Amino acid sequence: MTEEYVAQRYAHLRRAAFLMCGDWAQAGELARATLARALTAPDVGDPDLWAYGDLMAAFKPSHGRREHVFVAPSEAGERGAADTDAGMGDVFTVLVLDALRRLSPKCRAVLVLHHFCHLAVVDTAEVLGLDATKVTEYEAEGLAAFADLLRITRPAVTA
């Protein structure tokens, strides 16, 4: 991987990490660490799949440790124009992060990789070490959770 690749992919990996952890500072650290390892990694087939796999490995829960997701408030210095342009407005961000934090880490990773990073089901399965059927099951679970959240948050209609 080249320095040009690192420069091109940092913002996207940071946003993917943010969707996983809900904290811009932690997301930046994780994206930087992944890209630093990418520069020294031996020949990898697909650099994006390798980077996503490395990034998602940071979210594998260790045994006996309960996962907590905390959402840091966005700060002007932490959010760039790309975040706003990509539709990461405050209300949308809160809704998405609330729905994502309710999911298991694997289910969250499937939604982030498949829907935000636009990986195919087979590529998502490869990155996470799952079979494609399991990816589809996690996706269905996550999308159902999003539908439930949207149903709950829908404003009341006045007659």
Rank of each mutant, 00 (worst) to 15 (best):
D83G: 02
D85S: 10
V71I: 14
E75C: 04
D83I: 02
L97N: 04
L95K: 06
D83V: 08
G80E: 00
A81P: 13
L95R: 06
F92K: 04
R79F: 12
A72T: 15
T93L: 06
L100D: 01
L97R: 12
G89E: 13
F92E: 01
E75H: 06
E75Q: 05
L97T: 07
G80W: 06
T93K: 07
T93P: 00
F70R: 12
F92A: 05
V71S: 09
T84K: 11
L97H: 10
T84Q: 14
D90K: 09
T84M: 09
T93F: 00
E75L: 09
V91C: 00
L100H: 03
F70A: 09
V71G: 01
A81K: 05
G89L: 05
P73M: 07
V94M: 08
F70W: 11
T84A: 12
G77F: 12
R102V: 00
P73K: 04
L100C: 02
P73Q: 09
L100V: 03
D98S: 04
V94C: 00
E75W: 04
E78G: 15
V91E: 11
F92S: 07
D98L: 03
D85A: 14
L97Y: 06
D85K: 09
A86W: 14
F92C: 02
T84N: 05
D90L: 08
L97D: 02
P73V: 12
S74W: 06
G89N: 10
G87Q: 03
M88N: 13
G77C: 06
L100Y: 02
E75N: 01
A72W: 10
G80D: 10
V94D: 11
D90G: 11
F70C: 00
G80H: 04
A99N: 01
A82V: 07
V91S: 05
L95M: 07
A82Q: 11
V71T: 14
D83L: 09
A99R: 12
A72D: 08
V71Y: 03
L100A: 03
A81C: 08
G89S: 15
E75G: 12
D85E: 09
E78F: 13
R102G: 15
R79D: 05
G89F: 08
F70I: 14
M88I: 12
R102E: 14
G77Q: 04
S74L: 12
R101E: 11
D83N: 00
G87F: 03
V94I: 13
V94H: 15
F92T: 13
P73T: 12
E75Y: 08
G77L: 07
A81Y: 10
D98R: 04
R102Q: 14
V91M: 03
T93I: 02
E78L: 15
R101T: 10
V71D: 04
E75F: 06
A99V: 14
D98V: 05
D83F: 13
V91D: 05
D83H: 07
A76L: 15
D85F: 15
G77I: 12
D98W: 00
D98Y: 02
P73G: 08
R79Y: 04
D85Y: 15
F70L: 09
A72I: 07
F70G: 00
A72C: 08
V96S: 08
D98F: 02
G87S: 05
A81L: 15
L97A: 03
L95Q: 02
A99E: 06
V94R: 13
V96N: 02
L97E: 01
A76G: 07
S74D: 11
M88W: 15
L100P: 03
V91K: 11
V96A: 08
F70K: 02
L97K: 10
G80M: 06
